[in-house]
Design a binder for these strands. Structure first.
Lengths: 346, 346
DNA sequence: TTGAAAGCGTTACCAT
DNA sequence: ATGGTAACGCTTTCAA
């Protein structure tokens, strides 16, 4: 109330030891739940802890501790504001909580340099492990961390330049399923709208598109393929151009949630929402409430995050078995937009 | 390749000093950019750092450092997966990056106990500051942190039990504006669907609803008011009940994005999407793409996060002026659902 | 400009 | 079962 700056120094183990009339080591034992302490001393220490409102300094603790554990894990994703990343993050947080750990997260924005900087920073801040959806073409720079004993688990995108656990989806198969679905409805002119082709996810989805088009005996005219669409605006414009071109597609396959919503906007603007079919890779909130509902190949971000975090903590806790790769299924969710038939032949 | 566990210990200042043939103190000076080091030694040290791939241990550094800065800030929000929280988080991250800091974030899930635990954990992990949207009725427990010198900034919800900076919206005025808008379109039976009434945001919005209904000379029959709806399912059911009741409302005011989407689901299911008006508090992605577009009182989550983080870093950097309260405007975004007129009187 | 030594708060080692 | 002392990796006096 009256004191403006009564900055009191926090109590230390020494203060607690003094008040309880024991050695610092005994205080340390009590804090860490070591059984070999008499009831008598234990309660004296606990009382002193309560009276001084003592809280152990984790930095000092992990500095000295043999295993060096910090109770923190790092998470690097594309953009924490994107629903895919946000959902995955939350799932990781929940697993981390069970392991009494906190999550230090960062957004990469598809910037390899930022990735290296953030990974460096996170290492300097001390993390027991790292979960990453890399933006860089090569994560060899992480080998040093791995050698230093920090486990790394990849999500969404596979490791390159090192071997590590990975939680992925089958992008090729998922994209193929999307195209097959559209072909079965009768479409022959199916366009591809995708993210940066340099991304392994996008290139996998494009390959799935190409392969399935081939299997269906359908041509892939270059004018029906648009790469490197990374935000809603770019996707909207590309879809608009495609749909107003000389020989427009009767169906769209979009490789990512932002691209999908861009396509929806273009279809809306042109009044084609119920005339041109659309299947997107990656689900997003409210996709079922749009008119028509958007048919998607769903990625279960929560399950990916949970799986990755579970894997990571197994490694943190000393699992040294061979690297594992877990593939999360991508179900086709039928909602209407993917079931629009092509216009009658003429 | 061949070594399975070549865990090499990371290099320390001592190793660098030895290799460069200088004292550890000089290494420390170079690391921290202290100018009083000769070019000669500086370059020798930098070479050694590069050769040993040395990276300073931040935990040890902040342990000894006078200001005790950790380069980490803490962020506690309702649910990191919610678009409001996720957007705010991302904005905080961007400001933090400019200040060379990382963000340690956690979800509270409206659980006061979890809030206290997380705040404790974050303090133990060492954070230079805290941004929080509290779930508890009283944040007096934070006084200790504040006294210990850790600045706290509140977002979305005001502090109780302590004085601190706050970045808020005017919930009363925003809700009143929503109701006024519906009344101006001609509605008289306007229902309120809201989150836990114990939340200051929800209670403020309810008050705005009540007051504006009063100003408009409209009654507030208890059967048109539903509180404590915290997820989509509860909101959907409540809206469904209201709309299928004996004297259904002609318009809905919903207090939060999850409640709003629940209401949209109920309206859809009943085929009333174009017959019953709806205005929601809090914007959400794709609200403009629904049919009809959802009219909302928008909260600019990104701006709230940016403002809060900017404020926090001013405090972290030594600003000791009186606590400030910043109010972020909440524009009415007209999209269609709020402009549906009531059915003709009969 | 440079360095030796002390110390940050904790845990590990080795006695007792 | 308990405690003294060294040590973690770094920065801060304080001297030189």
């Amino acid at each position: 109330m009256s004191d403006p700056e009564p900055i009191r120094k926090p109590a230390t183990v020494r203060d607690v030891a003094a008040l309880a009339g024991v050695s610092v080591k005994t205080v340390s034992r009590v804090i860490n739940g070591v059984p070999s302490v008499s009831e008598e001393l234990r309660s004296r220490v606990n009382q002193a802890i309560a009276r001084l409102d003592f809280r152990p300094n984790l930095a000092a603790s992990s500095l000295r501790r043999a295993d060096g554990r910090t109770g923190r894990i790092a998470l690097l994703l594309e953009d924490l504001a994107n629903p895919f990343s946000a959902t995955l993050h939350r799932a990781v947080e929940d697993v981390a909580r069970r392991h009494r750990s906190l999550v230090l997260a960062g957004s990469l924005d598809e910037d390899p340099q930022r990735e290296v900087e953030l990974a460096r920073a996170l290492a300097a801040h001390g993390a027991d492990g790292l979960i990453i959806a890399p933006a860089s073409p090569d994560q060899g720079y992480l080998n040093r961390e791995v050698r230093a004993g920090t486990p790394v688990v990849f999500v969404d995108r596979p490791p390159r330049g090192l071997t590590a656990d990975a939680v992925l989806v089958d992008n090729v198969a998922g994209a193929a399923a999307a195209v097959r679905h559209l072909a079965e409805v009768g479409h022959r002119r199916i366009a591809y709208l995708g993210d940066y082709l340099s991304l392994p996810t996008a290139s996998g989805r494009f390959r799935g598109y190409q392969e399935e088009m081939g299997r269906q005996g359908l041509p892939v005219p270059p004018e029906l393929v648009r790469h490197d669409l990374h935000d809603v605006t770019a996707a909207t414009e590309a879809a608009h151009e495609l749909l107003t071109g000389p020989l427009p597609p009767t169906a769209l396959f979009t490789s990512q949630n932002l691209v999908t919503t861009g396509a929806v906007r273009a279809l809306r603007r042109l009044g084609l929402g119920h005339r041109v079919a659309l299947v997107g890779f990656d689900d997003f909130p409210l996709a079922d409430l749009l008119e028509p509902g958007v048919t998607v190949i769903a990625q279960d971000a929560a399950r990916m995050g949970e799986t990755a975090a579970t894997l990571l903590f197994e490694r943190v806790n000393g699992d040294h078995s061979d690297p594992r790769e877990v593939v999360i299924p991508t179900p086709l969710l039928i909602r209407g937009s993917g079931e629009i038939p092509p216009p009658a032949e003429r």
